[in-house]
Design a binder for these strands. Structure first.
Lengths: 208, 208
DNA sequence: CGGAGAGTTGAGAAACCTCAAAGCAGGTGG
DNA sequence: CCACCTGCTTTGAGGTTTCTCAACTCTCCG
């Protein structure tokens, strides 16, 4: 079907710091990240922010907006990025005709729900070390799945953003990085991270 | 369409403590709660548990299982309950023919994602008082939407389960209840809660 | 009526936060 | 191209919140 092409024909680029969408804006499309890095965040009335995720190429964002026809969070580019806009009406229409596409959409939404469960686990019952270890292992696995090194990568987000995501203050994140480095788990130079001892890192999270 | 009836024809009852499904079980249906109360929880390898939600009549659970064709959490009845099983293949089939149903399904999944965002906010950037206040106001609002009193209700879950959901220890939950009672926000008799001062309770969460 | 599970309360410990100061890196304008 | 400025990161010291451990009470079933 050439109609499928229409799903992925609309591309847009964003400079670092630009908003893909903001909370409250009307909903009309999902977005597939083709290149770059985004964060999603919820802002509280009193100014507190909660980073709810970091998205990398191949991942879809915007599904929060379906339920109320308006976005419920902000999406911000963490580096120069390119996205592909997927008009949701068209996606629904096509998925009525193409069961495989329909199931795929459902799986993507379900995966988001499962991802959120994992974050709840992390925020609700892990200590700072475990949270950071889980975060790094998750990044590692996602970089690996995209053909990048699972052991050495560049963090696109600040300590403050990592902290917000992990429910910690930036100082605690920084200290935990330093502690991991002292213990030979990581080699950290600001945003450059190299995992030196995956097994011990995993043992923090209980994967062993 | 009488096919729609087939979606809701399969009913089952559960005694308190019985499992609707367990993590790892194969996926074939979503479940609508008709009566009673459930909790969903994720179990960690090391025995830690994280309660990811409390579900009441009218709510749909099981959507986590779509992405990997297997459940990723447990669902346990907190009191004698009745559910309605919705075979997912049938639901997808029907939603291909009935766009309104299709959109409804997407909204339900999206609502779950938004709900999870709220919990991340709660777990990531609120203090114990704020978490409990948010939890009680959320229950209040949901009871109210079902025609029950928003101000007086019975908790179906233990302090331990509330604590797990809120990322707190049961003692902290208990102490915070006592503190709210001392300050005239609540009247608490174990599982019976009466909200005495909604406005002040809301002010904790920043809803003013 | 007894027992088991659930809840409350206290005291001390641990984890994390706050505030503060100093060091770094990267971008911008002269 | 360099110097400066801004925002990010690191590290320290002390304070708060929450947790842990423990004892006791309450409630609800059987």
């Amino acid at each position: 079907m050439q109609r499928l092409d229409a799903l992925t024909s609309l591309k847009r680029t964003f400079k670092r710091g630009e908003y893909l969408y903001r909370s409250g804006e009307p909903f009309h499309a999902l977005y597939a990240i083709r290149n770059g890095f985004f964060k999603t965040q919820v802002l509280h009335e009193d100014g507190r922010e909660q980073v709810t995720g970091f998205q990398m190429p191949g991942e879809i964002i915007g599904m929060d907006a379906i339920c109320a026809d308006a976005h419920t969070c902000d999406a911000v580019a963490l580096e120069d990025s390119e996205i592909c806009e997927i008009p949701f009406n068209l996606l629904e229409e096509l998925s009525r005709d193409v069961p495989v596409l329909q199931r795929h959409l459902h799986k993507i939404m379900s995966r988001e729900i499962v991802r959120d469960q994992g974050i709840m686990m992390l925020l609700g019952s892990m200590r700072a070390e475990e949270r950071l270890a889980a975060f790094l292992l998750n990044l590692s696995q996602r970089f690996s799945a995209r053909g990048y090194s699972p052991n050495a990568f560049l963090l696109r987000m600040t300590r403050q953003e990592i902290g917000s995501y992990l429910g910690l203050k930036l100082e605690t994140v920084s200290r935990t990085f330093s502690q991991f480095q002292e213990n030979g788990l990581l080699s950290v130079r600001v945003r450059e991270v190299e995992i030196m001892d995956v097994l011990r890192l995993r043992s923090f999270v209980g994967h062993i």
